[in-house]
């Protein structure tokens, strides 16, 4: 997750220009991103971790497009989701999707029988093997960096 920018968030917490265009703000009762942002700024965001609200941002980017800071409160929701995932508290379907992604590099394999019936050519080869290799390198580097930060901290 990109780190949050408290200066921009502070403006967000008092603005709300995007509320009239945000599909979740307009159509889901109780959805109030500024309440989340205010708690983030106050450091009291624990209660939002895996709250149903933080999963209601549809990532439609309407807020980003209309925001005079070109920021949008999607960033705050993403931050809350990332922290929720770190604590392994995500909704069941998110966990299922993630497991499949990490295992296969895809969110579903080409449906071979249906393809044949439709007369489609064989699907191109997946890059799962290379994907797994780079994921492994990525995770190793991330872990060693975390260890280094820990020792530096001491």
């Amino acid at each position: 997750m990109e780190s949050l920018n408290p200066k921009l968030l502070e403006v967000c917490s008092r603005c709300g220009a995007c509320y009239h265009i945000c599909p979740a703000c307009l159509n889901l009762e109780g959805y109030d991103p500024r309440a989340v942002i205010k708690d983030i700024l106050a450091g009291t965001y624990e209660k939002w971790l895996n709250h149903k609200s933080i999963w209601q941002c549809l990532e439609c980017h309407h807020c980003l497009e209309i925001c005079f800071q070109h920021y949008g409160f999607e960033n705050a929701m993403t931050a809350m989701r990332t922290l929720t995932a770190k604590k392994r508290m995500t909704p069941v379907q998110v966990k299922r999707g993630w497991d499949m992604f990490i295992k296969t590099g895809r969110l579903g394999e080409p449906a071979a029988p249906a393809r044949k019936k439709l007369g489609l050519p064989e699907a191109a080869k997946s890059g799962a093997e290379d994907f797994k290799k780079i994921v492994k390198i990525y995770q190793e580097r991330k872990e060693s960096e975390a260890r280094r930060q820990k020792t530096d901290g001491k």
Partner: peptide
């Protein structure tokens, strides 16, 4: 050949 999930 070789594409994976975009990813989502």
């Amino acid at each position: 050949d070789g594409f994976t999930c975009c990813p989502e």
